[in-house]
Design a protein around this nucleic acid. Structure first.
Lengths: 201, 201, 201, 201
DNA sequence: TTATAAACGAGACGGTACGTCCTGTCTTTTA
DNA sequence: TAAAAGACAGGACGTACCGTCTCGTTTATAA
């Protein structure tokens, strides 16, 4: 449920109701602008203007740029699905390279990282929202794949799935962050191969 | 070598030379402000004012806030030293928990991450400077420790040190980034323990 | 009618209307500052600050310092009244010495002259505004006095009143401009006496 | 004598003497820039740069923009010569229309007026210099013409030549200043004709 | 000759003001 | 009563000049 909707409950309000199209238009505009100029150079002004909306209308819904962008990123992020090719190893490579691709290819991906740092640092509530809508589904898909491997007897049952996740996603993310070099599928495969020996049954 | 200094070589310049104290004052001010309000809320205005310097003097040396902050962070970053307790395992735990502590405890650490994302994304030259002065020394200390382990016969000789580094540093970094939870020495030790089996001789 | 107001007509505007108090505060501040430091050293910055107003608020109404000062001077200039002592000769002396006094005694007077030169030179529209609100009323008072003299049979009916005006006001103005010496009532009387013989019936 | 030269007297100085070419170059540059952008938009920076000279070199000679421009205008102003067609009336028309033309046609002319106001107002010394080098020669030419008319018996001997001058030059100047309309030879002739009856023998 | 001293170009310095953009709040009309 | 429009105080932007101050270099006279 969106943070925006939560004040709707409790019966119909008086006066003109909020226009749902307005909300969409604002988030769409935010996404487009992030893609063009990145998180730092996004301004509420520009979002409102592109959405064909007054600035106060934006502020009425999101108290800050950070809040707005979190919702925009959450809305934008492509749905995740745990691939199931029948081979857990392949599934893991797919998942990781897909996730890294998400992170690194678009401005939105970079916004996500900017948000990750910022929100985690001082905005627990936002971090929670971001977690709930963005990270948790991705971790879940990953963990489901691991679980499938365990059930299939290909992975050891005593592993710490979260730690494995951190290793498999953290290593390429860190490489990208610190060197700026793109992470292709081959690099992703190498990481999975390396960690694989830790987890294989 | 500082980016600021590099055009000095090749004979005496004409005109009044730049004042090194001014450079120090500006970088010190930048560091202080980053620590107080973070990268995003740092303004050139505030830096100049705190440094007791005219704004144009800042712009004369660093064309943008990003350039300035990269140099400030580079100057600030504490010297790295590869610990050498005699036990490679302990050394690795120390190194990792120290590095993560660096990253996560101070505003400057968070600025570093913000920079990592931003600079990597669109400013190859800045990323290079940041790499050269900040990341490379840290990687070097880590790799030297691994090398010592190999020489001592405790680590396999055929490992890819960079990949091991990405795993050991990437996993806790990723955890911190995505959850915001601090990484203590125990968590660092768990990562090292896990990866250790990949690398032990 | 103020240049600022002229685009208000034609139905109610949307959005928050401009605050008339703000306009007053800015013009008052401009007048005060002209009186203190003169036209050349007046800065929009200082005007805004003294008026307790944001700088953009000033620019929203007047695109340049010149535009602002023209309006300020127009507002400031004391109302003119054609004196009517019953004696046209005395009236003329009063009018001239008063006008010259206006021009030369205050910083605003000097601003008026600076404006006269500047505005006339390259800003027809401003010159027109200045003319309409400042010069025309003064010319009118003068011409009315001449007309009274003609009606009373003391002045010739075939004179060119504009030319007489230029002579009576231009001579002392020119003297002041080119020598910087103040023009007192005695000097004004001498001019009127001299020109009088040209116009007396 | 130029204000610049006055500290030269008293024997040769030690050290490198000032370069007269530099002085010329600066004044030429100042004149050119006044012609292009006017007095208000002239900057020392631009003058120095165009003259191929360091800024301190300008300040060494002229303490302010005003001082510099006064000298520049003085240097620029075309030599005056009292025309002598044999007919005093024609001479006066020529003189007046020429002077007005000087004043109104060029940016330098407008600078002169700006200077007249500014310098007269608060800089007695500058006003004096301007007077001495610019105005006095022009008044002298005019007065010489009047004198010739008196000697020839065409003008009354008891006139106040300064007052006549103020009338004949002041009226068209004032007209131009207050209306911005150019003063052509016909307008100049009308003024002379009008005043003529005051002065003719 | 050799100092010494001033002028020169260049350009950095602490500043001020520029005119613009954006912030977050407010007031008004329209729906 | 929400929405759009837009004015408001304010803050920071990056730039242009200000007038002053080093610099290294050049060009004179004085020792």
């Amino acid at each position: 449920m969106s943070a925006v909707a939560e004040d709707r409950e409790g019966g119909a309000r008086r006066g003109r109701p909020r226009d749902a199209n307005v909300e969409s238009a604002i988030l769409d505009a935010a996404v487009a602008i992030i893609n063009e100029v990145g998180y730092n150079d996004l301004s509420i002004e520009a979002v409102a203007s592109r959405a064909g909306v007054g600035r106060p209308t934006v502020y009425r819904r999101w108290p800050s740029k950070l809040d707005l962008v979190v919702d925009a990123v959450v809305r934008l992020s492509p749905a995740v699905s745990a691939p199931d090719t029948g081979d857990v190893f392949t599934d893991l490579v797919e998942l990781i390279s897909g996730t890294i691709e998400d992170m690194t290819s678009s401005s939105v991906g970079r916004a996500i990282l900017a948000l990750a740092g910022t929100a985690a640092a001082d905005r627990a509530e936002l971090a929670d929202r971001f977690n709930e809508h963005y990270l948790v589904p991705r971790r879940a898909a990953f963990l489901a794949t691991l679980r499938r491997g365990i059930d299939a007897g290909r992975l050891r049952a005593d592993i710490d799935p979260d730690l494995i996740l951190d290793l498999m996603l953290g290593a390429p993310t860190y490489r990208w962050l610190t060197t700026g070099h793109p992470i292709d599928k081959i690099a992703a495969r190498r990481v999975v191969e390396t960690v694989w020996s830790l987890v294989k049954a």
